[in-house]
Design a protein around this nucleic acid. Sequence first.
DNA 1: GTGATTACATAGTATTGATATATTATATAT
DNA 2: ATATATAATATATCAATACTATGTAATCAC
Lengths: 259, 259
Amino acid sequence: MELTSNLTLELSDQPFLLEKRIQLLNAIKQHGSISKAAKAVPMSYKAAWDAVDTMNNLSQTPIVSRETGGKGGGGTTLTQYGENLLKTYSILKEEQKRFLERLKQVTDVDKGTLKTIGRLSMQISARNQLSGKIEKIVKGVVNTQLHVQLKSGNRLVSIITNNAVESLGLDKGDDVTAIFKATSVLLATGEIHISAQNKFEGIVESIRAGKVNAEVVLSMGDLDRIVAVITKESVEALKIVPGSKVCAVIKATDIMIGK
Amino acid sequence: MELTSNLTLELSDQPFLLEKRIQLLNAIKQHGSISKAAKAVPMSYKAAWDAVDTMNNLSQTPIVSRETGGKGGGGTTLTQYGENLLKTYSILKEEQKRFLERLKQVTDVDKGTLKTIGRLSMQISARNQLSGKIEKIVKGVVNTQLHVQLKSGNRLVSIITNNAVESLGLDKGDDVTAIFKATSVLLATGEIHISAQNKFEGIVESIRAGKVNAEVVLSMGDLDRIVAVITKESVEALKIVPGSKVCAVIKATDIMIGK
DNA sequence: GTGATTACATAGTATTGATATATTATATAT
DNA sequence: ATATATAATATATCAATACTATGTAATCAC
């Protein structure tokens, strides 16, 4: 049983970006003329022209700029806005593809249920969501250690139950997201001797202090960022200020994995 | 800018369940005949009959059972399998709706980027995902307390950062999912005097012991279930066996919220 | 048996969508 | 001025689809 789906962007209740039109825009980008693009897709010239016209009319800012006559008889090119639209669409399409694949895996047609815990599409409160690749999987009897290589180059270790590894179908090389709460992050300065497996050096970007707690944003290179919520006293005791070099410590068991 | 999408189930490369056909099946379920269903949708009788016929032909197990003649001249009813299909489709559709809504929120058409950190469609390793409704929101300077009423009737308190509340757009009455790791769950028997806000009574359904840790599944009524991973010694010390009445304790700061 | 209602089947008509084709307008190169 | 390639527009043709109309078969209630 296959799952398929289209993706349509609507503007003022009118279909605006459809699969076919995207193909057409791509062809226009490539060939620089509506007539050539229509041949490449393929579709009739009229259909192509109509599509381009309705798109340009629907949109506030034009999608393509058309020129009649001139060198080579004229031509049609995408505007910057048009290119952005194409890019947006391809990103959305990609996300949707991932979603459908997941949905398919998880669907149990015979029972009329989803064989999964929880929702598929969910926004999570956790501030810290770092993406990376699984480098090594060490399986225990109940728990599994996952070694994840982050974009920033840092390595991270997460401990989750074997059941979770199985139900997510985790394998070496998989792209995953490491998820942990801001309150799971401890901060330390200077020499650290602590049993936790995850220690990340970073520079303090910002501090927002409340009455009791303070939110500290840590930057680890350009790519990864960690948010910590610690007590106000700790901030003062450690003398943390923006620009400080501090170490974020996270227990491996506090890190969840999303795929 | 609106995002819309259809959802089609395919069987051996043939479109099988489409939006229209689902409507038809629903009408058949309601009215008990193809002709009445066709009027209700509305569509022509022939189109309705053809649709039903092709569906029944494509599927291994029949979707509807048809009877010609008899009381009232005959009729058409859904089979159990057909009902399951309808249910599956509605679940899938619901998931897709959530996904699209989220996708829309997160899309920045002008820039051609997604204004999000993580992936949209993600399955999380956390075994414990309990759904409920937000009952009360108590906002602090940095953190917010969320009181969630679970399906089982239990109340749960989660503490997350104000930032998270804002970025999820959480409000009183919202349907949310409380997420926490199996290793965040402590188990206790007898009288408990502990500062944690979340204490849930349950019956032990199963125990799976490893060398060091053990996985204990707790049932809180029919609806909610909690999985705890605790040390093997704890299991022995507390004398936990299947059927035992135990108390699950979870720190409010260990509970994340998904929406 | 008659009537009622519905499934099942076929033929013809209408509508729609796409394609094909032809024509005009435009502006540059030669 | 002419040739050229393309946009812009209109009309005619074709194919697919959907709908309408009509008819047959089946079975139970009366």
